[in-house]
């Protein structure tokens, strides 16, 4: 456990000045900021629609969730999986890392956990900032009715689903980025996979849930559909979440065997 902990600390220390780390903070800040600015500037038009409070929250948080779930999330995950591995490929430091008196599992697991942690921070900030900026809008424009509904449960549920649904992609991309030192292969496969995943999910293919790249889309769509009806009734652990978790754990284990067999040339 100690080896895992120090490997994790080292991952943070190495990456704290890189875009990969700051993306986790800047991405939610920028997207939530832009949406809030849009709501602030168009306040009159939006208020004229006389949305009930819950629908107003749905409109507002759905803007971020929609963009995230469909498009940015898969690419963000692909980028995270790439960057935690690329930091070693780029500097030719794998040999140094594996020559340290640490077990290989700790080194590998720390990288994987660190990528998960960054994704968690990113999504946590999305949820937190959506909530905070919504309330800030209410203060700035008192005629909004954000204050008449508490969306916290839905937000947490929706982002928790998105987080869990993205772990399948993460594990898959993590292996690709571990194996290949170049940018194009894992990114190219990830890009094609994501497009295919989104199409498969949107045409409603029966087996779309078997494609890891479809899962964030599937997960966020179900939470959206149900939001209009009974928002608190949707469960987190649906079929696509289980699929994602199974993919994540199986691929995580396969990745470890790849690492132990990996010869550092």
């Amino acid at each position: 456990m100690h080896a895992l902990y120090i490997s994790l600390v080292s991952e943070y220390y190495k990456s704290r000045k890189t875009l990969a780390f700051w993306a986790a903070i800047l991405l939610p800040l920028i997207i939530c900021g832009l949406i809030s600015a849009g709501f602030y500037n168009n306040a009159e038009k939006i208020i004229a629609n006389h949305y009930p409070p819950m629908l107003l929250w749905a409109q507002y948080s759905g803007a971020a969730l929609g963009v995230m779930g469909f498009l940015i999330m898969p690419f963000y995950v692909i980028f995270m999986a790439f960057s935690v591995n690329n930091i070693e490929h780029k500097n030719d430091t794998w040999k140094m890392l594996f020559a340290q008196p640490l077990n290989k599992f700790s080194i590998y697991a720390a990288k994987y956990l660190y990528a998960i942690l960054l994704i968690f921070i990113c999504l946590f900030l999305f949820a937190a900032l959506t909530y905070a900026f919504g309330n800030l809008l209410q203060v700035l424009v008192p005629t909004f009715n954000f204050n008449q509904y508490n969306p916290l449960d839905i937000l947490i549920n929706a982002y928790a689903k998105l987080f869990l649904a993205s772990l399948g992609i993460l594990s898959l991309q993590f292996i690709l980025s571990l194996l290949w030192s170049d940018f194009l292969k894992p990114m190219g496969i990830g890009f094609v996979g994501t497009i295919m995943g989104i199409i498969a999910a949107n045409v409603g293919w029966k087996y779309a849930y078997l494609i890891p790249y479809s899962l964030p889309t599937l997960a966020s769509r179900i939470s959206k559909v149900k939001k209009g009806m009974d928002p608190l009734a949707f469960s987190i652990f649906t079929q696509e979440i289980w699929t994602s978790l199974i993919y994540a754990s199986v691929l995580f284990i396969i990745g470890y065997f790849i690492v132990t067999k990996k010869s550092i040339k």
């Binding site: 220390y13 190495k14 890189t18």
Partner: peptide, 22 residues
């Protein structure tokens, strides 16, 4: 081993501190 394994985006000192952490 071969070329020294150094993180280019970190300073010389940070490279050594990272090693201290590990």
């Amino acid at each position: 081993v071969e070329q020294p394994a150094i993180y280019g985006h970190l300073t010389g000192k940070e490279n050594l501190v990272n090693r201290c952490i590990l």
